[in-house]
Design a protein around this nucleic acid. Sequence first.
DNA 1: ATTTTTATTGATTGACTGGTCAATAAAAAA
DNA 2: TTTTTTATTGACCAGTCAATCAATAAAAAT
Lengths: 191, 191
Amino acid sequence: MPKLGMEPIRRAALVKATIAEIGRTGSLEVTVSQIAKRAGMSSALAHHYFGSKEQIFLAAMRHVLTVYGAEVRGALLMAEGPRARLAAVIRAGFGPANFRPEVIAAWLNFYVLARTSADAGRLLAVYQGRLRSNLLHDLRPLIGARAPDAADRIAGLIDGLYLHKGLCLRPDGGQDATRLVLHALDLELAA
Amino acid sequence: MPKLGMEPIRRAALVKATIAEIGRTGSLEVTVSQIAKRAGMSSALAHHYFGSKEQIFLAAMRHVLTVYGAEVRGALLMAEGPRARLAAVIRAGFGPANFRPEVIAAWLNFYVLARTSADAGRLLAVYQGRLRSNLLHDLRPLIGARAPDAADRIAGLIDGLYLHKGLCLRPDGGQDATRLVLHALDLELAA
DNA sequence: ATTTTTATTGATTGACTGGTCAATAAAAAA
DNA sequence: TTTTTTATTGACCAGTCAATCAATAAAAAT
């Protein structure tokens, strides 16, 4: 019954299942069999398409980063002026797509994976660099030389609140975090 | 050659070895054998004293939290006035004891463990509650009703920068983070 | 019609791991 | 001196898991 052109479908299903399984267990202690089962195929097929478990994880991480990146770009398009752009970046970080429990779990575990796997580390560095660069770009016209430190603080606050809200799975989550960071931005700009 | 009274010595050695091994591998994927070997004993003895791998991890987590708590209390003793006490809490969080690479790795992985193990979750909640309570206590006399939000931000910033500095293992680490958070505190107080 | 390519899985393997246990030895208690 | 308690380990067990592979089947190419 082999239909042709299954590869992209299978890969997407595996990526989705990987994130779901990480969310379910809350850790990277997920077996390829569990992932494959949720994706509706045998573990052998998962290995056939991805080669190894680490490659499956990396593909899932890339997917999360891609979604996040697209969300930021989309939000930036509709923002005029540095201040609005900064708010857009902040809002995107805590947007509903990134704040689903399973995506939070994935992020948290990718942080850990980044310490082990060089590929994961590079991927995470891309995210961190892009976030900081986005913030810096729009902070500079507003506060000039104080921008670099402010960018570090805002970025750190985003990551820290994401971690915090992600751990004590409150339902409000993203909204409260967004409010707190936007206020922090006001403080930076008013100084 | 069994010398009596080995239990506390062995337990301490295992806790120390656990943190070291987590630091070495950068993850919780550490075998009891590896820990026991580093602590200079057989894995059977590690099981004899701790019963299970999870109990070993929890003991290590308790140790990290105890050291951190002692450091905060010590710093608070020498601080006069709310402002100085806040600075002391911030400095303690990024103190050299908490900023050794292996301790950072332990913290990061305990965050993950907290999502799986109820005991670990409780332990982490204790830390988070204590940090927030410390901040709140000394922020209130300075900024009154704005204190709760400010405490959330400072706490989030501490966690976020700890995460960030912990990942891109820069040597300066703690000092830069301390400076950034102290500046954030100034912004909160000046608002 | 035959060959090749793609899709798919059950069975298997080889390595690893947490945990148990019997056995050993020395100190302490009786 | 005998017994009990504490310390300690090598061997072992039962289970898990990533990865491989041979086998099967259908579509595509020849």
